[in-house]
């Protein structure tokens, strides 16, 4: 079943200006429910922009992003916020709130989802234990190493038990052991029928993909079935 579909999707920054940047230019792809889709391409090819548009983090300049047949480009802010509650996002630069503790960074996104406090704590502890950083519960995010921050970012994305996980270079800062844990989580998500959309150069991640999308210069290179 089709979960996401983009139709002639374009994202331009500073449109019309001399310094216009065409991050995405006429990209049409589809993503099935339950698939593991990896978006590859050189740096600046528009990978991050594509998953940001799919994840309702910004609106397209032209074209459409459809989720379950619904055009995200015309949704209100409230509707987009509700869409994001079904999603989990792992950012390339982690995007933790530096002055929050590890625990707060994980449980804060669960608050608008209406999850009770005890359940929020349980999920946070479970995920942190799985990623081997349960001892850092009350440490401020800006006091963690890069690898630890990435683990927290992944835990945050998974804590809401999302239908779709977006991840931008999720294993880039992870050691082999933790990277293996992440791959295991990815497999479990896939088996559970969840959808994952990732950008990665990691061959082990690409190997798990049910679908690979390649971008170059903001344009689609190949869309194998």
């Amino acid at each position: 079943m089709l979960l996401f579909e983009t139709k002639s999707l374009c994202k331009f920054y500073r449109p019309g200006a001399a310094a216009e940047v065409r991050a995405l230019d006429d990209v049409s792809v589809s993503i099935e429910t339950g698939s593991v889709t990896v978006v590859t391409g050189p740096s600046g090819s528009g990978k991050t922009t594509l998953i940001a548009l799919l994840g309702a983090l910004e609106r397209p300049t032209r074209g459409q992003v459809l989720m379950d047949g619904r055009d995200l480009g015309v949704c209100s802010d409230v509707e987009l916020a509700r869409v994001r509650r079904r999603l989990g996002f792992v950012f390339q630069d982690f995007c933790l709130i530096p002055r929050f503790t590890v625990l707060d960074n994980i449980i804060y996104p669960l608050i608008p989802r209406g999850i009770p406090h005890t359940e929020r704590l349980r999920r946070a502890r479970e995920l942190l234990t799985r990623f081997g950083i349960e001892g850092k519960l009350h440490v401020r995010a800006d006091e963690l190493s890069g690898g630890e921050q990435q683990r927290v970012a992944i835990a945050r994305a998974l804590a809401g038990q999302p239908d779709v996980v977006f991840a931008d270079e999720p294993t880039s800062n992870l050691d082999r052991e933790t990277g293996a844990i992440f791959l295991q989580v990815l497999k479990e998500l896939h088996l559970a029928g969840k959808t994952a959309v990732l950008t990665s150069h990691d061959p082990e991640v690409v190997a798990l993909a049910t679908r690979v999308i390649e971008l170059k210069g903001g344009k689609l290179v190949a869309t194998p079935a």
Partner: peptide, 19 residues
């Protein structure tokens, strides 16, 4: 700037503007 970023992260993780 820091505050904007924080709010952006909250919105990205499901918070609504009015919340």
């Amino acid at each position: 700037t820091e505050r904007r970023r924080e709010i952006g992260i909250l919105k990205a993780t499901g918070w609504q503007t009015d919340e």
